[in-house]
Design a protein around this nucleic acid. Structure first.
Lengths: 150, 150
DNA sequence: TCGAAACAGTACCATTTTGGTCCTGTATCC
DNA sequence: GGATACAGGACCAAAATGGTACTGTTTCGA
């Protein structure tokens, strides 16, 4: 179905919740409550998002999480990559050369092109836009990408 | 990693092989040999592609498969959909309304927008282009999509 | 008319990935 | 020094995936 994992989906919800309170440090419990997700799950998500440098963590009493940079500077691609690793539709989109079928198939180039285009789409959607809930206010020229079918 | 299943990847290879012989009816064995894939796997792929109406099948001796329509009229989106069902990045991109968290999250709209854009990218890549192995010769205006990151 | 070739359909199994939970450690604040 | 809250693992159950096998059914050709 060409979909992202459920955790990635959850991660966007969690990031949106955090972005909605730019000034505060929110505890995992608060975020879980607001996002209507299980606490251990949210904890796991936040750890991964922290490793990717998208959120800052504070330990101890009154600790919690906060966006590491403004919502305008975080893209959907950042979140997807944090959760699923580098974006590439096929195995050989990333590590080319180690597919013994390469000579026979010849489709790897096309897949790489498509992967690049999709990366562009994901990169054009910012967390700020997702927070606003608006479809996709043009931010970069690359955004007119959407028309094709949408 | 946001990738398509391996079978989908294989399907593109198989389709490319068939497209390379537009006039002939190729047996599963021939295709498997040319694509360097296992025969039962190719058989499974072809059945799915047949159900989706992308290839025509002929039974009996000298039977086999052939493209159901010209390579220019088959897009990567067609192949992906044949293998993985409707394109949508998240569960609620397709069936909205049945997510009890919808009120809380508010990101579904953004995901739907992005899914649409990706669908456009996939639809802009035709089998003919994949066969040619060229990155993405402009065919429709929507094609300049690729730049963003590629 | 019969047998071989080749697709159709289905069922099955092993492996991997995914999603989710729990436990222990460590830092911070009061 | 104790309570709060994140860090970092390990761990497990369930589902999806990929691959295989078996049994029809159709068609051609001798």
């Amino acid at each position: 179905m060409l979909r992202v994992s459920r955790l990635t989906d959850y991660a966007t919800v969690v990031m949106t919740c955090i972005a909605a309170h730019p000034a505060e440090v929110l505890s995992t419990a608060q975020i879980a409550d607001e996002a209507k997700l299980e606490l251990p799950t949210v904890s796991k998500l936040l750890k991964m998002l922290g490793h990717a440098g998208l959120v800052e963590s504070f330990r101890g009493v009154n600790g919690g999480y906060r966006l590491a940079r403004p919502a305008e500077a975080i893209s959907l691609a950042d979140i997807v990559e944090a959760m699923e690793g580098p974006i590439g539709l096929t195995e050989c989109s990333l590590a080319q050369g180690q597919c013994e079928r390469l000579s026979a198939c010849g489709v790897s180039g096309s897949w790489r092109t498509v992967s690049g285009a999709i990366d562009g789409v994901l990169r054009a959607m910012t967390l700020a836009q997702m927070l606003a809930g608006r479809p996709m206010a043009p931010v970069r020229s690359a955004t007119d990408t959407a028309q094709a079918t949408a």
